[in-house]
């Protein structure tokens, strides 16, 4: 195990962390705002990948897919919002879990009907389908692009939350919803906006992941659990929490898989259980939780 091994695994972990971040940030802020748990978030990620593949096939451009597919997922999300999600606000965690679990089933079969039950690939754009040299290690440029994309969105969200008016409103509502409503903030509309942004990011993560992992009908369910773990470990409703959680889970899973094969997956669950029991508010919770 020389330096190149560590660099390689570090980059792999960073790339996985960024995917997890894109998925978990929407979920965690939605949760923070209204304590809404959306198990179908992983299904939106899967939809992003499949729609992206179709868009790329139709237009011949990966970049078109990367832009259009997340918007399509957002539209689907908006339809979901007005038909189901909005009615489930305040319906209790069990009903939310059940309905969004039902949605997983629905989307699973819709994708099977539309695209079949085989793994579909998406090729990275030619400009990124090469390898770069990172400290003497050859690493696919496309994966570096995912890391960069994740960091860029992280920075963008950070600035939005910290510096803009809507960011301040979101933070206020997460910290103390009733107080924010009393001050005239329309928490319902904020929730809708955040929900849409969450859908866009989930779709984006799906398209971005497709060239690396291929699109499969199981991808939504298999990414859901790590994403939920990130949300709980990081602390509900907080950007810092989602960042920290993504990095922790991404690195534990990646390094665990190569250093402690067999034990790695259990490690994340042990961490989750420990957090739930000892620090249920998560590592870096939004204040007020």
């Amino acid at each position: 195990m020389d330096a190149s091994f560590w660099i390689l695994q570090f980059l792999n972990a960073a790339q996985f962390s960024m995917l997890l971040f894109l998925l978990s940030i929407g979920l965690t802020v939605i949760f923070g705002l209204l304590h809404f748990i959306n198990l179908a978030h992983g299904a939106l990620y899967m939809l992003g990948a499949y729609i992206g593949i179709s868009v790329a096939a139709a237009t011949g451009s990966f970049w078109a897919a990367l832009i259009l597919a997340p918007l399509a997922v957002m539209l689907i999300g908006a339809v979901l919002y007005f038909t189901l999600i909005d009615r489930l606000r305040g319906a209790g965690p069990m009903n939310q879990v059940l309905v969004t679990f039902g949605l997983i089933f629905v989307f699973l079969d819709l994708v099977r009907m539309g695209w079949g039950d085989v793994a579909l690939g998406l090729s990275a754009p030619p400009s990124l389908a090469v390898t770069s040299d990172i400290l003497g290690v050859k690493y696919p440029s496309y994966r570096l692009f995912i890391i960069a994309l994740g960091l860029a969105i992280m920075a963008g969200l950070w600035i939005t939350l910290a510096r803009t008016q809507i960011g301040a409103m979101i933070r206020a509502s997460v910290e103390n919803g009733p107080m924010a409503s009393a001050m005239g903030i329309n928490v319902g509309r904020l929730f809708f906006i955040v929900f849409c942004v969450g859908c866009v990011l989930a779709g984006l993560a799906g398209v971005a992941a497709a060239p690396v992992t291929s699109a499969t009908t199981g991808m939504g369910i298999s990414i859901l659990i790590p994403t939920l773990i990130v949300v709980v470990i990081g602390g509900l409703g907080s950007l810092q929490g989602a960042i920290a959680g993504s990095i922790i889970v991404g690195f534990i899973e990646t390094f665990g898989a190569v250093l402690l094969p067999g034990f790695a997956a259990v490690l994340t669950y042990i961490l989750l259980a420990a957090i739930l029991v000892l620090r249920p508010q998560g590592l870096l919770p939004a204040r007020g939780h």
Partner: peptide, 10 residues
């Protein structure tokens, strides 16, 4: 059959 169960559940 998943879609049927999913819709029934919802």
């Amino acid at each position: 059959w998943h879609i049927v169960i999913g819709i029934l559940l919802i």
